[in-house]
Design a protein around this nucleic acid. Structure first.
Lengths: 113, 113
DNA sequence: ACTCTGCGTCACCCATCGCTTACCGTAACT
DNA sequence: AGTTACGGTAAGCGATGGGTGACGCAGAGT
């Protein structure tokens, strides 16, 4: 992953797919194997494997070989760039919005709603 | 937008597309008209219009008719659900990760790094 | 050595999506 | 009234991407 915006883009596209988000959310409580994750999902195991590949490429999960099984776990740092991008966006949008409200409706400097 | 998860899903899919993110980022500094946004982008104006429609459906932007022009601005609350989802995820993943590190390597109770 | 289990990978199919070119409606100006 | 500027919408096309089933490989147990 070269720069931060690339990581953000990868994370967004990875989390955009619904089934991929389901796969990702199944790792919240801890590491799980591929077959474990696929069980109960409406898609086949190869599909889950591919989704995990995308998540791994996006830096959102890491894998660890454990015998014939393969444990996937969430990489806590993976969401970092996305969070940073979102926060920056949030702040800038908020301040600009407040500034513009102040500009277009300068009647009451301290209007509560 | 019915529930919070639907809003999160819509926001994610909306922001996943690169050109749509470009459109979105062009609104950071304030409201702009459609033609304004399209100028300089590698896509045509109708494409931008469609992207704005998706962003609007996702609750990320609002529009306001201004004569023959139409001003689009970022809805500051639009990113709320996505932020909430991300933060919740971040926290849970962090705690679980720390707990598991503690469990798999219980040698040093207070390992830095 | 044989077998079984667990995953990754390949090839292919089908649906979705982003983009373009037309077209149409509306608001402002002369 | 006509004209111009601006933008939403429809139709169609090409590309992308998620899904499946088939195959192959490595590890563990017998």
């Amino acid at each position: 992953m070269a720069n931060r915006s690339a990581a953000t883009s990868a994370a967004l596209t990875a989390l955009a797919d619904p089934t991929r988000r389901q796969v990702f959310e199944r790792l919240r409580k801890g590491p799980r194997a591929v077959g474990d994750i696929a069980e109960g999902l409406p898609v086949s195991r190869p599909a889950v494997s591919q989704h995990l590949g995308v998540l791994k490429a996006a830096g959102l999960v890491t894998d660890e070989a454990q015998g014939t099984r393969r444990l996937y776990r969430i990489d806590p740092q993976g969401l970092g760039p996305l969070r940073a991008w979102l926060d920056q966006f949030w702040d800038e949008a908020m301040t600009n919005f407040a500034a513009e409200v102040e500009r277009t409706a300068p009647k009451k400097p301290r209007s509560r709603r």
